[in-house]
Design a protein around this nucleic acid. Structure first.
Length: 296
DNA sequence: ACCCAGGTGCTGC
DNA sequence: GCAGCACATGGG
């Protein structure tokens, strides 16, 4: 099928999903909870306009595509109209959004997203990936499909049953307790994706922050990457760097180390409020751009 | 031996 | 509300 604004390679490297892997040229495996799908992408090199369209083949059935992956990849949103709102005088954002062309903000499964971003704190992306792989191998149901064997993401029940001790040896460090307690709380609360999505942004964030190991930043990631709150704007170290370097007008009198979280929130409000209610999509483009600049 | 990574919890003011 | 510190682990 032909999709406008869809670049799996960039999504893969955007830091919002950890179980998406490039297999070979134009082929990607995407895992979500107890599903996986293979994407085969063929570039359109014909004319200029066609380069913005991607031809993608999904390995799943038409029914599974319609009922799950279509929403997962956020394929029904008009990203082009959001791009058009970026003013020419913001050179940084122009460049970031050019890099981010084709990066959609995914609608991932709630429990997996909660655990993934609890793990993400104070870790680099490759390390987050291997922690999650370790969890899946130890606690995830073994599955097999036309492409071979693999493991589902563990259920909260499986984690809770294993206890904190069950999480040893996976390089989770102090996050072991966070993950175990969140699993127990998830079950106790009867937490669910529908429940969270039915709340307002403030209610949902407050609820998420009541789980052990979920604070302001991780809550915003979950709201953005799983619960469809496209206005959520997670502020992490990279976003702080960007806000200071590109958007702080007081660099001469304030060193970056002296800025507090509320200073950064004020900067974000001032420069990104105009993209509401889609600030999170912008956040994702500048984040992806930043982490892929810093590699070189 | 440092410093940093998609931070959070806890304490004390 | 805000600052200061401990918290594992791996990589530069």
């Amino acid at each position: 099928m032909r999709i406008e604004f869809f670049n799996p390679a960039r999504i893969c490297a955007s830091g919002q999903i950890f179980r998406m892997y490039p297999i070979s040229n134009g082929v990607f495996d995407v895992y979500s909870a107890d599903r996986r799908v293979r994407l085969s992408v063929t570039e359109h090199a014909d004319d200029e306009a066609d380069r913005r369209i991607t031809e993608v083949e999904f390995s799943c059935s038409e029914d599974e595509f319609q009922t799950y992956w279509r929403r997962f990849f956020d394929l029904d949103r008009d990203y082009i109209s959001i791009l058009k709102r970026i003013p020419d005088d913001d050179a940084f954002l122009k460049a970031a959004s050019e890099y981010g062309f084709g990066i959609r903000v995914l609608h991932q499964e709630l429990w997996e997203t909660m655990v993934s971003f609890i793990i993400s704190q104070q870790k680099q992306i490759p390390s987050i990936r291997s922690c999650i792989e370790g969890l899946c191998e130890r606690f995830g149901e073994e599955k097999e499909d036309e492409f071979g064997k693999w493991h589902a993401f563990p259920t909260p029940g499986a984690i809770a049953k294993g206890g904190v001790q069950g999480l040893k040896g996976l390089s989770l460090g102090y996050r072991e307790r966070y993950i175990y307690e969140t699993a127990v709380q998830y079950l106790e609360h009867g937490m669910s994706q529908e429940k969270l999505e039915g709340m307002t942004y403030d209610q949902a964030k407050k609820y998420l922050k009541s789980f052990t190991g979920i604070g302001e930043k991780v809550a915003n990631c979950i709201l953005l990457f799983s619960a469809g709150f496209t206005d959520a704007f997670p502020i992490d170290t990279h976003i702080k760097d960007i806000l200071y370097r590109e958007y702080c007008s007081m660099k001469s009198i304030r060193r970056q180390e002296t800025l507090t979280l509320s200073d950064y929130e004020a900067l974000a409000r001032k420069h990104f409020a105009c993209y509401s209610p889609d600030r999170g999509l912008i956040q994702q483009w500048i984040f992806a751009y930043e982490i892929n600049q810093s590699i070189s």
